[in-house]
Design a protein around this nucleic acid. Sequence first.
DNA 1: ATCCTATCCTGTAGGC
DNA 2: TGCCTACAGGATAGGA
Length: 281
Amino acid sequence: MRRMLEATVRGRTIRAVTLSGLRLREPVAPSLPRRLRGRTIAGLGRTGKYLLVDLDGGLTLLSHLGMSGRWLFFPAAPPDALEHVHARLAFTDGAQLWFQDTRRFGLLRLVRTAALARDPALAALGPDAVAEPPTGATLHGLARGATPAVKSFLLDQRRIAGLGNIYASEILHRAGVDPRRRAGSLGADEWERVAGAVRAVLGEAIGLMGTTFSMYRTVWGEPGGFGERLRVYDRAGAPCRACGTPVRRIVQGQRSTFYCPACQPRSRPRGRARSAGTGTS
DNA sequence: ATCCTATCCTGTAGGC
DNA sequence: TGCCTACAGGATAGGA
């Protein structure tokens, strides 16, 4: 989304902003329209799942899509009727940018750019999965002693920022790691495979402009291209694209997890031979 | 400190 | 058709 907005709205000047008045994850400040009016979008940034719309004058619009949020760009006439639109930014050249969010778990918050890093939403985030992709050794160190399942571990934004429920399942499938394993139990070789899968999955998904299995759309209203490339997510009962075994769905931390029981075996496939230490007792 | 659950909200799909 | 439950891309407050 950051890249798409960079290509569409950077450099445009805001003429007017209107709000729905409905509460999102938190109330949207009623002062937002007044504070945004007349400002030019200087650039687009991102940390984890937070989008940063940098404006001239030292302000940044911090935004999060939650589960169902969308930014929609209209170069000229926007649609007559569209439900669940909570902010409409009209630019001086006639283009518009709308924030639509059916479930209202999203976020729109205006902050001073200089204080951005201290904003509570960003301060607790771990290194960004794309900007600072973790090495296997980094992940291994972060997971030392961690008892949650590796799937839940990957979703924890305080350790690595930016991975969500779809990509967590896809990453573990590509890495050949069972999502039920406790994070602290993975070996260095397995974390290396996870680290490689983080880069591979995110790189490919971003290149294809995101993942649509249902409602997600690009800023131009098109489905993202990665949905067709999903190997396990939302494919319960369907054959694994690698080996044909039916994909399983389980629930971890109230979130669905999808995995292939053959490609992601419960125990480590290599190192079957017992270590030399066994005979010493 | 760490881990886990319930909760916020609306829409849709599937079973009966 | 209508009614019911389960589930959907996330973060977080609060209890164990």
